[in-house]
Write a protein that binds this DNA or RNA. Structure first.
Length: 263
DNA sequence: ATGACATATGAGATATGA
């Protein structure tokens, strides 16, 4: 069967990053691309530019903050917007759909997990609640026993290995023991971290470099963008890669794309 | 210690990010 490429990328404003998004799609040609931090509402999303490249567009947008999308060469089915479990939650951080490629169907979610800083505020409590809701929902989806890819900006550094200078992140919501424990709880439902599956304990695998203090030039990076795979999806994993060269482009996002290939 | 730097909003300064 034809291989399928699935990607995730926090673009930090789709309007500011439109040229980069187009250039990267042309170069990487993912079948499904999950985007985060659109920072625009659905009607303002530049859908036509992506449709011109042959992509179907699904968005769950929000003004100024958050916002997630899925671009796909196949039409999405069974689309759902928002993460179950907290009806009053109005932040646009979750979008899910099923993409069929001939006889094969893969369920994909685009996830923008809350940052949670500063950790002594409601923002951190919201992050942890959101992770509990994600675990509960992932638990339901795993019962389907189908290929499933939960892709996005998790805002969690899973291990010290995933930071160039882990000591800089002590106490940060991205590296707090509570955040890492909840990330493990989700993974331990039986989900495979695609990049770690592909690269083992290799160091220097980062997806984010801060704009400030020359973080990119010093390779002061962290790995916080992840693709978690159900067992049925993990069986299909061929390769994973981090397109870090995109961070060299002019006026880049602070995150770079992560891409997997399924057989 | 704080800010650095980037983005959106909206027209100056503030909120948010990680």
């Amino acid at each position: 069967m034809r291989r399928m490429k699935i990607a995730t990328w926090n673009v930090n404003s789709i309007k500011a990053r439109l040229d980069h998004a187009i250039a990267w799609l042309k170069e990487a040609s993912p079948d499904v691309a999950c985007l985060q931090e659109l920072k625009c509402e659905d009607q303002a999303f530049p859908a036509q530019a992506f449709e011109d490249l042959g992509y179907n567009v699904l968005t769950h947008g929000q003004k100024t903050y958050n916002g997630v999308a899925i671009l796909s060469k196949m039409k999405g089915e069974d689309v759902s917007r928002g993460l179950p479990g907290e009806p009053e939650d109005s932040q646009a951080r979750y979008l899910e759909a099923v993409f069929a490629d001939g006889p094969r169907a893969i369920r994909v979610a685009s996830i923008y997990l809350p940052n949670g800083n500063p950790p002594d505020t409601d923002k951190f409590a919201y992050k942890l609640r959101w992770m509990d809701r994600l675990r509960a929902h992932a638990c339901e989806l795993l019962k389907l026993e189908e290929p499933l890819v939960l892709a996005g900006d998790y805002n969690v550094i899973p291990q010290s290995l995933d930071a160039r200078f882990p000591e800089n992140w002590t106490g940060d919501a991205l590296f707090r023991p509570e955040s890492r424990a909840k990330f493990r709880e989700i993974a331990n439902l039986g989900l495979t971290d695609a990049v770690r599956q592909a690269y083992g304990d290799e160091p220097n695998l980062y997806t984010f470099w801060d704009y400030q203090a020359g973080a990119w030039q010093r390779n002061n990076g962290i790995r916080i963008d992840h693709l978690l795979l159900s067992p049925q999806a993990a069986d299909l994993l061929v390769t994973a890669r981090i397109d870090k060269h995109v961070r060299e482009w002019e006026r880049p996002s602070d995150h770079v794309p992560v891409l997997i290939e399924l057989k």
